[in-house]
Write a protein that binds this DNA or RNA. Sequence first.
DNA 1: CAGTTTGTACAGTTTAAACTGTACAAAATG
DNA 2: CATTTTGTACAGTTTAAACTGTACAAACTG
Lengths: 182, 182
Amino acid sequence: MEGNGSDKLLVARERVVESMAKNMHLYGVTSSIARLYGLMFFEDHPMTLDEMKEQLGMSKTSMSTSVRTLMDLKMIDKKWMKGTRKDHYAVQEDWYQSFIDFFSIKWKSAVTMNIQSIKKSLHDLEVLITQPDIDEEVKHTAENDISKLHEALKYYDWLLQVIQQFESHHIFDLVPRPDEKL
Amino acid sequence: MEGNGSDKLLVARERVVESMAKNMHLYGVTSSIARLYGLMFFEDHPMTLDEMKEQLGMSKTSMSTSVRTLMDLKMIDKKWMKGTRKDHYAVQEDWYQSFIDFFSIKWKSAVTMNIQSIKKSLHDLEVLITQPDIDEEVKHTAENDISKLHEALKYYDWLLQVIQQFESHHIFDLVPRPDEKL
DNA sequence: CAGTTTGTACAGTTTAAACTGTACAAAATG
DNA sequence: CATTTTGTACAGTTTAAACTGTACAAACTG
């Protein structure tokens, strides 16, 4: 790609990619990974690790780990191409689904972990306050903690339900997709 | 706080705090900041920087910057206490609102930035393809990019609407709060 | 099955960010 | 207004994470 206009094209792309790189930390990825994602977004064909390495001037190892991260987030897919041994990757075109997957993968597991910890501590505290020789002030504090943790549990349950509304696509009842692919 | 049972109380708290510390990176905060948040969550009274520094064994400077971060996220509030010169801080008790604020603050600004970049690049590309001396292949690629960016814009607009549904509390129509504070 | 190719594990290096201590400005006190 | 207290700016240090190069295992090729 050369000749008049291609420089302006690249500047236009670069601006968008840099913006993504600045903001994709919300998905828990580094700006390097975000730039890789941006590159793949504009590239029309599925890319190999060597192409990525070439385009970004980074090591193949980095490309490998970055690709794995984006795969885990389901933001890119592995494409099987015939007649080649290299793996090829392309961005998940459905950004709505990527958003949903992010919550389904990262937030859900975080919430689940917190719920587990809270339930365990809740149990321990319930046992604690039944001890006959417990200090009165400790008991009072424990009861207070129990109350707080119950509230936290309610919140996490709510959050889990919100995520379920994403997963089931009921969120599109509240905010419809602009239009389906024609 | 000492005597029988207080050690078990602390273990129970510690478990929950550590779980939060592991997962609060989703809010873009470090585990240290998360632990501070956890400390304040269990503490019943608004805390001063010196109390935090004492409890966590960290520098006052760190406490200051951490508190600022949590304030920016609206996860804690500054409380005005009479009869003291120190600032006091307490966690925002309404976690539903904290969740909403996070999107309202961080995600909205990220989406807005991306939209700005895309619109600017979209404009540049529209100009580009009207150039009479443009390379045909470049023109074709530019048109393809324009199409992708329009789709992206639609997605970001959808996302902005989702955030608005959070802000307006219409999300509670889809997933009701378990029950209001009595 | 020998020869290639491809992706990744791992150790070492570089880079970024978290954290500290000092020093100071702003605000409160008497 | 002098004195004390409090929060934070800033430079320097420490710690964590991103990144690289080598080396190798697994998978493909002929």
